[in-house]
């Protein structure tokens, strides 16, 4: 039961992070720049455990698309070692840097691509989590050029649209 609840929360969190990045592409120049530098056709897969939710995204040069299942293996695949760890990661109990330090995931692909993803996720988390939480999980709290409320609103709209 507990595992099932964790899976539901992690699945929602994955979609929320994606929706936040899509929103931030329009709102935050740092995120927009990071995405612009991403090679067209770049694909990421994030697996959160055995029989647990996954997220597949592709950068088509304009948008970060959530795709149901990639035709080929993603260029960068992050495999978290257990759902319990993914739950901690996606509920603000552990940052990506600490996940790396704690050997929480394996990576197939180039490390440079994970660094890019880490910067994007850190940025999204800095907006999504309250500062008291962000300070604990991020190496440093960045200056945010947009109000959190605007980001929440846009993210929520994107999240709900993707659920329909």
């Amino acid at each position: 039961m507990r595992r099932r609840l964790q899976a539901v929360i992690v699945a929602a969190a994955l979609r929320l992070v994606h929706a936040a990045l899509v929103a931030l592409q329009r709102l935050d120049p740092e995120v927009a720049g990071e995405l612009r530098r991403m090679p067209v056709g770049m694909t990421y897969a994030i697996h959160t455990g055995h029989n647990a939710p996954s997220l597949f995204v592709e950068w088509d040069g304009q948008r970060l698309l959530r795709i149901p299942h990639p035709e080929q293996a993603a260029l960068c695949t992050l495999r978290l070692k257990a759902l319990a760890i993914s739950f901690r990661l996606f509920t603000g109990q552990m940052g990506l840097a600490h996940a790396y330090a704690q050997h929480a995931f394996t990576l197939s692909g180039e490390i440079a691509d994970v660094m890019r993803l880490a910067r994007l996720v850190n940025r999204a988390e800095a907006y999504l989590f309250p500062p008291i939480l962000s300070r604990r999980i991020l190496p440093e709290l960045p200056e945010l050029p947009v109000s959190r409320l605007r980001v929440y609103a846009r993210t929520l709209i994107g999240f709900l649209q993707s659920s329909c």
């Binding site: 840097a97 790396y100 330090a101 490390i111 994970v114 660094m115 190496p139 440093e140």
Partner: peptide, 10 residues
């Protein structure tokens, strides 16, 4: 570079 992810400061 992967080494940067665990640096004490971003």
């Amino acid at each position: 570079d992967g080494a940067l992810i665990v640096n004490p400061r971003a």
